[in-house]
Design a protein around this nucleic acid. Structure first.
Lengths: 195, 195
DNA sequence: GTCTATAGCGAGATAGAC
DNA sequence: GTCTATCTCGCTATAGAC
């Protein structure tokens, strides 16, 4: 609030977060030392503790911010006229959002086990909210006769796993543009839910 | 060959592997110490080095064995009469195999980044061979007019990601039996490839 | 085949100077 | 706001007794 603008802390903090995000994604939380993060930022290790209570808090902050962004951007999607259109919007949103933040996505999935129980619970709740959104969408579509799915919960898991999988193989400048990948996955999702 | 049967090493070795597998899956390779593994087995830490050159070799052995099992069991599946039947066999095999070895599956995916480059290359090659099997199956089915897939490579990635995802939520004694889960996923896979 | 003991190192975190 | 210096701990790996 009353904080002076452009204090060096306003610059250092995001630099620490960016360095930690990248290093955690590359090598894993447990394998990365505070010294490595400090070196990547260009400060000494003691400086990091001005911005984070400890290493665990740094990890949790990164994951929490990521999940909050995911949920708020999902909520910001325009309302679709039909269940089919809503599912298409979700499909394309999921691929684009996850592709644009592959480091954070990787961490949010792989480092869950390195969170202490309370922090784990909070992240899990957000992940379940995201899944519940898709499940609700599938339920409405099925009830409206637009989809044929044997089990909406399993279909939600299956769709999310399928779409998140794009991150494991997609590379910029490869055989297909991301737009084209979206088109292909949307065809597969649409057929999988019997639309 | 000429080794005496039931020497204590024949017992200790698999116990070390089992303990390492479980601990690596639970907490991650980097977060698990050789001391923890030794304690889980009930030996002192020096003993571990009688069975493994170092921690990295222990990880690689576990991953290599897992991938070899995966490929040999896949190769042992009876030949199916049609592409559709072959895809159903693959679907059910993948779910069952991965469910039965969830610790090894988790490690083989999550700890790739902790392998040194040469070891990484070997595991990656086996993973690609598995994907290529499914891709080949999809190509034959599409050419025979049994499937409608826009891109067989992407369909293979999508199917594998979808099926492997079962491990993230399935729990013994839950709402659905594994057999039932197989049925539901097979319906989704079948529809996704336009069969 | 397993143990005890330890070398050598790097980790997370903190204190206090500037 | 950042640095230097350091405390304390636990790690991988090895040596040598039994």
């Amino acid at each position: 609030m009353a904080r002076k603008k452009n204090s060096s802390g306003d610059i250092t903090r995001p630099r620490i977060r960016a360095a930690a995000l990248r290093l955690f994604a590359r090598h894993g939380y447990a394998a990365v030392s505070m010294r490595q993060i400090a070196a990547a930022v260009g400060v000494q290790v003691g400086t990091l503790y001005l911005y984070t209570a400890d290493k665990q808090s740094l990890l949790f902050d990164l994951m929490e911010t990521h999940m909050q962004d995911l949920l708020s951007e999902l909520a910001a999607l325009p309302t679709a006229p039909t269940p089919l259109a809503a599912l298409e919007d979700f499909t394309r949103f999921h691929i684009r959002f996850h592709r644009a933040r592959s480091d954070a996505v990787f961490i949010a999935y792989m480092e869950l086990r390195n969170l202490d129980p309370e922090n784990f619970g909070r992240i899990e709740a957000m992940r379940r909210a995201y899944e519940a959104h898709l499940d609700g969408l599938l339920i409405r579509g099925r009830d409206a006769g637009a989809f044929t799915v044997p089990d909406t919960k399993l279909a939600a898991f299956a769709v999310i796993a399928m779409l998140t999988g794009v991150n494991t193989w997609y590379r910029e400048g490869g055989r297909l543009s991301l737009e084209h990948v979206e088109d292909i996955y949307w065809q597969m999702v649409r057929k999988a839910v019997g639309a």
